[in-house]
Amino acid sequence: MSENLEHSFVKQLTDNQNIIHKICRLYTDCEDAHKDLFQEITIQLWKAFPKFRGDSKFSTWAYRVALNTAITLYRKNKRTVATVEYEGRQHFIKEVDYNYEEEEQIKLMYKAVYQLNDIEKALVFMYLEDKDYREIAETLGISEVNARVKMNRIKGKLKKILNP
């Protein structure tokens, strides 16, 4: 493959890498696994890149390949535990208007999302990314109505996890 193609790919991926980081954040629970999945997604994106025509945005195209890799192609090296503490991975600078109660709730929410299965996580991920149901349905290969129904069920499931 030509160097130009490689350069163009690396440039675009570097600029759009947060998409992949976000997926890794949902699908992995430690830094090593995060890196491992990031690498596999990068390889799969690169493999699929010659077919990327540029008629859609790089980011839109990357979403699909990255999600597919996380859900379908990626082989977890170690058995992962769903209920891992999320706090350890958060190095975010605390805001001035730090709201303890809200922060606690967010932590619990992240934990709850970790307990969902791969498909449910994908729906939540796209929901968090403000994707509409048409795009969610298209990405996963299900009908739009059913994507909506499923999302409502997931909300119910999350509620149950939060208030057992």
């Binding site: 490689e6 790919f9 690396v10 440039k11 991926l13 570097t14 890498q17 990031f38 690498q39 596999e40 990068t42 390889i43 799969q44 690169w46 493999k47 890799t69 379908t72 192609l73 990626y74 082989r75």
Partner: peptide, 15 residues
Amino acid sequence: EIEIYKMIHKKSSSI
């Protein structure tokens, strides 16, 4: 970018 360059030359371990 350099790290991503390195990554794309690594072997996939997909199913």
